[in-house]
Design a protein around this nucleic acid. Structure first.
Length: 350
DNA sequence: ATTGCCGGGCG
DNA sequence: CGCCCGGCAAT
């Protein structure tokens, strides 16, 4: 049960980068999760931890031992995940697909081909109306309301894909966006999935009504929307907000105000403390902030049976920068003596 | 693989 | 003691 929480929180990190590659990302995402059952995480948890920020456009590549960081742009724009071709969808029977004129249909619609939506011919005018899925971390954009409805229904609400009928619930989870000309990216970036109003559930009752009048099928059963599906996004949003809150603050920012790229970890700081979730009574950072004496005691109280018969609990491994890190091997003579002697650093004490 | 540093050795 | 390093543990 903790999983959804973790999963969503961690995946949130990608929301920024998504801006850039959103279209492709969304595509991949959707194609990955075509199976209604598996809502596989779009982003692996922890990815941000070791991650180089490929998607973002820059890779923080190397920290030379001489002490500076170099940044390099990823030469390959290729998406990490292979743009999986037109879906391996087996659960959907491609009926009615045939009569689609395939020409100017852009990528975002490729997946749409799978669904039977008769895509209204795109007008080459300046205005283009797209429909964007508001589901957290999805951001899929389709060109038809029906398409987006279907998307929401199948992917997010877990409804069965082949029923054309919508009970209207999908409407809450997508919105309509207008684009000037063909700059899809523009429209997307202006509408970031993590809207400033984070705390609020998906913006309901927005402009979508225009789009969904059609529904060839009368809403037979005005299903009292399943409590689950109805509540799902809301909870997610809440959770996410919560988490962001508690995470932003206490993360390990070394007392030294030194800027270091690693400490900064670009706003993804929340994922660092596994502590908050493991239920470990003492977080590492707390222990680091105590004097050593206290620390020892703490460790004692924490572990009822310290497995160490010999010696003390090895010091929690100071996490600040140490002479070695700072000056580098080649400047060894600038290290503090302790460091030179491979003892606990005295200059950068934790 | 790298890094922090304990334990211990040598002069 | 000052100095150094083997080797372990954490990362």
């Amino acid at each position: 049960m903790a999983w959804p929480v973790l999963f969503f929180c961690s995946s949130r990190k990608s929301s920024e980068e998504l801006d850039m590659d959103k279209v492709t990302a969304a595509m991949v995402l959707t194609s990955l999760s075509t199976s209604p059952l598996v809502h596989s995480p779009p982003v692996r948890p922890n990815e941000g931890l070791n991650g180089s920020w490929k998607e973002g456009g820059f890779v923080c590549s190397s920290y030379s031992s001489s002490g500076y960081w170099s940044w390099s742009a990823p030469s390959d724009q290729s998406n990490p995940s292979t743009p999986s071709p037109p879906l391996s969808a087996d659960s959907f029977k491609p009926f009615r697909v045939s009569n689609l004129p395939d020409d100017g249909i852009d990528e975002a619609e490729a997946s749409n081909l799978l669904f039977d939506e008769p895509i209204p011919r795109k007008r080459k005018n300046s205005m283009k109306v797209m429909f964007k899925c508001l589901w957290k971390n999805c951001g899929k954009v389709l060109s038809t309301s029906a398409g987006i409805q279907k998307h929401v229904r199948t992917i997010h609400l877990g409804r069965n894909g082949d029923s054309d009928c919508s009970d209207g619930e999908e409407d809450f989870y997508y919105t309509e966006i207008r684009l000037n000309t063909d700059s899809v990216a523009d429209g997307l970036s202006s509408l970031s999935p993590v809207s400033p109003s984070v705390a609020s559930p998906p913006p309901i009752f927005s402009s979508q009504e225009a789009g969904r009048t059609d529904s060839a099928c009368a809403k037979t059963e005005t299903k009292p929307s399943t409590p689950l599906s109805r509540s799902a996004p809301t909870t997610l949003y809440l959770v996410h907000t919560d988490h962001a809150y508690q995470a932003t603050a206490p993360v390990n920012i070394p007392r030294s105000a030194n800027f270091t790229p690693s400490d900064n970890s670009v706003g993804i700081s929340w994922q660092s403390p596994p502590v908050a979730f493991t239920g470990t009574p003492v977080s590492p950072m707390h222990s680091r902030q105590m004097g050593f004496g206290d620390q020892r005691q703490q460790a004692h109280t924490t572990l009822s049976s310290p497995p160490r018969a010999s010696g003390g609990p090895r010091k929690p491994r100071g996490e600040g920068k140490k002479c070695r890190k700072v000056y580098g091997m080649e400047n060894r003579d600038m290290w503090c003596t302790a460091c030179r002697w491979k003892k606990a650093c005295q200059r950068f004490i934790d």
